[in-house]
Simulated assay, not measured.
Amino acid sequence: MKGVLLVNLGSPKSTDPKDVKNYLGEFLMDERVIDLPYILRAILVKGIILNTRPKKSAEAYSKIWWEEGSPLIVLSERLQEKIDQFTSVPISLAMRYGEPSIANGLKELHNKGVNEVLLAPLYPQYAMATTETIIALAEEIRREHYPEMKFTVLPPFYNHPDYITVLARSIAEKLDNLDYEHLLFSYHGVPERHIRKSDITKSHCKLDGKCCQTPSKAHQFCYRHQCYEVTRLVGEKLNLKEGTFSTTFQSRLGFDPWLQPYTDRTIEKMAIEGTKKMAIVTPAFVSDCLETLEEIAMEGEEIFEENGGKEFTVIPCLNDREDWVKTLSRWIDEWAKQEVEAVN
């Protein structure tokens, strides 16, 4: 029997600093998020970050928290419920960090008789700290508890025509009849070393401004290339004029070099240089969360207006919009049909 496990990032249980600390501890101690040797990672996370950051992060979460709970969790649950109405196989939901856990999601499917799982990380682009860590943990749980279970992993869909169509439509709906000067595509940042570590050729990813445009097998796992491809493909789909849109990266942590240009500095720079009307979209996420609702919609707008900007338009993530639900449902049914045909 077949089933699907949708997996998103996760969220604290509440805005209580203790819950936020527990969540950050699980998240930041992941070796694929902060890829330092365990001792150094523990000193940084447990010795420094968890003693200073939880209170500030709790305040940020409190600004965007919904009555029903974490926006990311609520939106993911809505997505799951709607997909369940369009598909014929069991659909479970899990978070990489926090609850509902991947272990619980696999147990739920197993209890329903599922032995073939479509593992679906809800990330358009591949990255060590997103897709890779989900696959690694799920496989670890499978080997230990469900060795008879078979996994198929939904590949990154950053360049899938269906995804580009839905994303472009969501942007167009927001921008139609809107007088804006620049559209910023802001993606979650990662350390530059993550790009080099993910380079299966061990030589292509030089981060020199050319490697992402030069064909290579490395692009299969290159987060930076895949982000720029989303921007390029959406730009073509919407016939955006050159110079009216660009790509940036947000949410850096620590002092190591992260992917550039940085979103906050770009917003500030463009406002200072005279941009009055900016729109911004965050295609590294399919569900609105702290990074989109607080960091971009609140902090980004504040930076823009403090430096002379006038109108700051934030385009929502795909969330549970109908065309996105139907797209994911179609992918799931196509997978289920292929598996049936393969058995027959």
Rank of each mutant, 00 (worst) to 15 (best):
T52N: 14
T231V: 09
E67Y: 10
F86T: 03
E301S: 10
T214Q: 12
A60L: 11
L119K: 03
K56R: 15
I303F: 09
L233A: 01
N104A: 14
I135E: 12
I83F: 05
G3S: 10
P215W: 06
V234T: 04
C211Q: 09
R32K: 14
L93N: 02
L5K: 00
D199Y: 05
K56S: 13
I296T: 08
T231F: 02
R143K: 15
K150E: 15
E108V: 07
E192N: 13
V166H: 04
R53I: 01
A168L: 08
T292Q: 03
E236Y: 01
R321Y: 02
F157I: 00
R224K: 14
F249S: 02
E311P: 03
L167W: 01
T201D: 05
E67G: 00
V4H: 05
E81N: 14
L106P: 00
E301D: 11
N8Y: 08
E322R: 11
T248N: 09
K13A: 13
D320M: 06
E140C: 08
S251H: 08
L318H: 04
K63A: 11
F285I: 02
D179Y: 13
L36M: 07
E148D: 15
M29E: 15
N159H: 13
A138Y: 08
D16M: 03
F249N: 02
K217Y: 08
R41M: 11
N22E: 15
K82E: 15
E302M: 11
M270S: 02
C205K: 06
L44R: 01
V314E: 03
C227A: 07
V343H: 10
A168Y: 01
Y223D: 07
A279M: 10
L119M: 05
A168C: 11
E116S: 13
T201A: 08
D16F: 03
V74F: 01
K112V: 08
V4K: 03
A136E: 15
K13F: 03
Y38E: 11
P124F: 04
R224W: 11
V117L: 11
Y158S: 00
V286F: 02
T165V: 00
M298G: 03
C317I: 06
T131C: 10
P100R: 09
G235V: 05
S170K: 11
L259P: 00
P12K: 05
K217L: 14
I91F: 08
I171H: 10
F285Y: 06
E242R: 11
W66H: 01
T275V: 15
K21M: 12
W324Q: 06
E291C: 07
L109R: 05
K13E: 15
L178I: 12
L50Y: 06
Y228K: 12
A42P: 00
P17L: 07
P90N: 13
D208W: 07
I280G: 07
L24D: 05
H110A: 15
C205H: 04
I73P: 00
T313F: 09
G308M: 04
V325L: 10
V314M: 07
T231G: 04
L24E: 08
M149V: 09
P12M: 04
D30C: 04
N344G: 13
E140T: 12
D16G: 04
E139L: 06
G98E: 09
R330H: 06
P155I: 03
E148T: 12
H160F: 10
S76N: 07
E116Q: 14
K174A: 14
T87A: 12
A103Y: 08
L175N: 12
L6Q: 03
